[in-house]
Computed example of a mutant assay.
Amino acid sequence: MEHFVWNLDPVLIEMFGLKVHWYGALFAAAIAAGFQVMKRIYTKEGLPVESLDNLLIYCVIGIVVGARLAHCLFYDPDFYLSNPMKILAIWEGGLASHGGGLGAIIALFYYHKQMKLPFLFLLDRLAIATAIFGFFVRMANFANSEILGEPTDKPWGIIFSRVDLLPRHPAQLYEAIAYLLTFVCLYLIHKHTQLKQKHGAIFGLFLVMIFSARWAIESVKVSQTAYQEQFVTAGQALSIPFLIVGFVLLASAFISKKD
């Protein structure tokens, strides 16, 4: 069986000794796409677009710090607790999306205190932008041949030749598709329905859709932990609290009589 071979040069362009990597370019595209989605939403709802500059700064810091700490503490705690200075070595790789999500929520809480807007109202809008952000980040992982799936004989298996010659589940693409479908769904709900009036409903739906997909996809991922996992993967275990919060928010939004 012929399988698609993926062997993308991680360097997008090199000029005058400077290199631009695919990962960096796609991560920048993720930030730009998320910002543009928020700008469109703010413009449509008559919110102060100029305040988004602060939100962008807070979220980028929250995502990077949260993702790095989560990776260090949940995926390889022994190494990083023994070498704490290595926690700062982000350029060596290691960001966990669960921690990035929590970091973004904390950043948004700080922003909401400044703006005097309801926290769940803002979370609903940020969830839409986060979905498209996640799509580009997972495409960056695909470009970098990282976050690999287990070997498979399925016809859609991909050989990441920079890693080995085994056809594998393209776990990054599975997640990218999940993020893209979630973005389209949430954006259309926000644009064409009144669900956005029920604070927390869109964010709750985001959590349920994304972390249900994460739970399923984790079963075909190569383990990213430095220790033996029991019963469930670290990614699945970290998804459980987000799923619970998502279901609670959805239930609360529909049970509440207040819009």
Rank of each mutant, 00 (worst) to 15 (best):
121 F>Y: 13
201 A>V: 03
47 L>M: 04
144 N>T: 02
39 K>C: 14
150 E>W: 00
17 G>N: 09
215 W>H: 02
200 G>N: 02
213 A>L: 10
252 S>I: 00
84 P>Q: 14
205 L>I: 04
164 D>G: 05
244 I>Y: 15
32 A>R: 03
199 H>K: 04
8 L>T: 00
241 P>N: 08
76 D>I: 06
77 P>G: 13
203 F>T: 07
172 Q>C: 05
254 F>Q: 07
76 D>P: 11
85 M>I: 04
207 L>V: 01
134 G>L: 10
81 L>A: 01
52 L>N: 07
215 W>C: 01
73 L>T: 04
48 P>H: 02
239 S>M: 07
138 R>A: 00
256 S>V: 02
220 V>D: 08
58 Y>M: 01
156 W>L: 09
130 T>A: 09
192 H>I: 09
120 L>N: 05
46 G>P: 15
56 L>G: 02
65 V>L: 13
219 S>N: 10
168 R>L: 00
209 M>K: 09
194 Q>C: 11
152 T>M: 04
127 A>E: 10
29 A>S: 12
90 I>D: 12
158 I>V: 05
107 A>S: 03
36 Q>P: 01
152 T>G: 02
100 G>W: 12
148 L>K: 02
36 Q>V: 12
30 A>Y: 02
206 F>H: 11
253 A>V: 02
24 G>Y: 11
254 F>Y: 13
129 A>Q: 06
201 A>T: 01
165 L>P: 06
204 G>A: 01
104 A>K: 05
101 G>V: 14
102 L>T: 11
27 F>T: 09
214 R>C: 05
186 L>F: 14
113 K>C: 06
79 F>V: 11
54 N>P: 00
165 L>T: 13
6 W>V: 12
21 H>G: 01
6 W>R: 07
108 L>A: 03
129 A>W: 11
25 A>N: 15
207 L>P: 03
93 G>R: 05
11 V>G: 14
145 S>G: 06
108 L>D: 03
226 A>V: 08
162 R>D: 14
180 L>D: 03
196 K>S: 11
1 M>W: 11
67 A>E: 01
60 V>G: 10
214 R>N: 08
151 P>D: 08
42 Y>L: 09
57 I>V: 07
252 S>C: 00
92 E>W: 15
74 F>Q: 00
225 T>I: 00
82 S>F: 14
195 L>S: 01
139 M>N: 11
43 T>Q: 05
187 Y>E: 07
152 T>H: 09
31 I>V: 12
213 A>Y: 13
51 S>V: 06
41 I>D: 03
80 Y>Q: 13
99 G>A: 09
18 L>A: 10
240 I>H: 06
80 Y>P: 09
247 F>L: 02
68 R>E: 14
85 M>F: 09
20 V>G: 04
94 G>R: 02
130 T>I: 03
177 I>F: 15
102 L>H: 06
8 L>G: 01
190 H>G: 07
67 A>K: 04
222 V>P: 05
185 C>L: 00
